[in-house]
């Protein structure tokens, strides 16, 4: 297997470092963007659906182990998110989704799927309003993550024109 496929697996560690130290500083009322998901979506589009599914599973497992959250919850949600993002990967569409603002939309959809599954497994309580939980725990973080993912699109554009 080509070495380039292992690089995304190593990138998760510096991304996690930033996610757990710097990202809480830009939180808005406990709502934070998910840098791990942005990385996952990027590599899922770049290398395909199967790869994205496996990478999502690995990212989720590492996050569960390091952050102390319910083991398996992030793994499950990120596996499905990686699988979903992989739908936007094909020879013809790859460049379109990685280099245009469509990337933010793919991140938004994947993040929504990720957060809905994660919320379901981490906060299953039938006494609370499910719609409110989905709004606060899935929609808001997804919007934040999607907004931040625009940086991924902007930076390569600048480089290409330099």
């Amino acid at each position: 297997m080509k070495a380039k496929y292992f690089i995304p697996a190593l990138i998760v560690f510096p991304v996690l470092l930033i996610q757990l130290t710097l990202v809480p500083l830009i939180s808005i009322e406990s709502v934070i963007p998910d840098l791990i998901l942005i990385t996952l979506v990027y590599f899922s589009i770049l290398y395909g659906q199967t790869y994205g599914t496996i990478l999502g599973s690995f990212y989720g497992l590492v996050f569960d182990l390091i952050s102390g959250s319910l083991l398996g919850s992030s793994m499950l949600s990120k596996t499905v998110a990686g699988f979903s993002a992989g739908y936007f990967s094909s020879e013809t569409r790859r460049e379109k989704y990685l280099n245009t603002y469509s990337f933010a939309l793919v991140v938004f959809l994947s993040s929504l799927i990720d957060q809905v599954i994660y919320s379901f497994f981490s906060a299953l309580d039938f006494n609370t309003n499910i719609l409110l939980i989905l709004f606060e725990q899935a929609l808001l973080p997804s919007i934040f993550t999607s907004a931040l993912s625009i940086l991924v699109v902007i930076i390569p554009f600048k480089r290409s024109y330099n």
């Binding site: 757990l20 130290t21 990202v23 809480p24 939180s27 406990s30 709502v31 934070i32 952050s67 102390g68 959250s69 319910l70 919850s73 994660y118 919320s119 981490s122 906060a123 939980i133 606060e136 725990q137």
Partner: peptide, 11 residues
């Protein structure tokens, strides 16, 4: 040394 912020599983 680190905070894992989430609406449900803050650690």
């Amino acid at each position: 040394v680190s905070k894992s912020l989430s609406q449900t599983q803050n650690t």
